Amino acid sequence: MTSDSSYQPRYGAAYPSLVDSVVLITGGGSGIGEEIVRQFARQGSKVGFIDIVEEPSRKLVEELTAEGHTVHFENANLTDIAATQAAIGRIRDALGPIAMLVNNAAHDQRATIDEVTPEFWDEKQAVNLKHQFFCSQAVYKDMAALGGGSIVNVGSFAYIAGVEGLTPYLAAKSGIIGLTRGLARELGPHNIRVNCVLPGWIMTQRQLDLWVTPEIEQAIFTRQCLKRKIYPADIARVIMFFASDESGACTNQSYVADGGWT
């Protein structure tokens, strides 16, 4: 069983509702988040993103600014809620009221059950779950004042698949489903939609460097219905749909984009 190594996602969809709208993306400096930033910028959105990595984030801003797009980066550790709230305030000052939020930032550090300490557990909940609530809390009034908005939380198929050595991460990612459903109910009266996208095994550079061996690649193609690699652009495409007005009747939902693994 082999993959179509020549496959690359092809794009043609344009979302008029994204043009000139302000979107905030967490973890936008690398991986899936980097591609989300690129795709929203190229749709004509005003993009603000937060990341802890400085140099790659600034290079991304330079690249997209040179293309004529509006992109603003703030450096902050998302586990520091006060710093994150301050960063969101600076993005608002630079770009205007925030109409869309993509809660993307996460970290899938492995650990066996005996390696997990209380401190490690708390840190994994902070980096994978906690900031999603507080970022939503920080922007929903902007959306309400605009007449509505969209929040897209990024979860993971891994909690469904039960990937070994990731129990704290899986607990946090499953919690994002509950967070999505709670926020959707609470923010629905403000015409704010809240959905969750659950990526599969995405071929980010980090995954390729650390985990994706030929044996792992073969296992992926065995499990997936689609016999090809899934790329960050595949996920960005789904997220843009849920952020846009094209999904205007969709809220309180969790959508799996894993090539048919689960």
Rank of each mutant, 00 (worst) to 15 (best):
A111M: 15
A111H: 12
A111D: 05
T112D: 14
T112A: 13
I113S: 13
D114S: 09
D114F: 05
E115F: 11
E115H: 10
E115Y: 09
T117L: 05
E119Q: 15
W121D: 00
W121L: 15
W121G: 08
K124Y: 00
K124N: 12
Q125L: 15
Q125P: 01
Q125K: 02
V127A: 02
V127S: 08
H131F: 01
Q132K: 14
F134M: 13
F134H: 12
F134Y: 15
K141G: 02
M143I: 02
A145G: 07
A145W: 04
G149I: 02
G149E: 04
S150R: 00
I151T: 05
V154N: 04
V154D: 03
G155I: 05
G155D: 08
G155A: 14
S156P: 12
F157A: 13
G162R: 09
G162S: 04
V163K: 08
V163C: 06
E164Q: 11
L166T: 11
L170V: 03
K173F: 01
K173H: 01
T180D: 08
G182P: 06
G182C: 10
A184T: 06
R185Q: 15
E186C: 10
L187N: 09
G188E: 10
G188C: 03
P189D: 14
P189G: 13
H190A: 15
R193N: 13
V194K: 11
N195M: 12
N195H: 11
V197P: 11
V197F: 10
V197C: 11
L198H: 14
P199W: 08
G200Y: 07
T204S: 04
T204P: 05
Q205Y: 10
Q207T: 10
Q207R: 14
D209G: 06
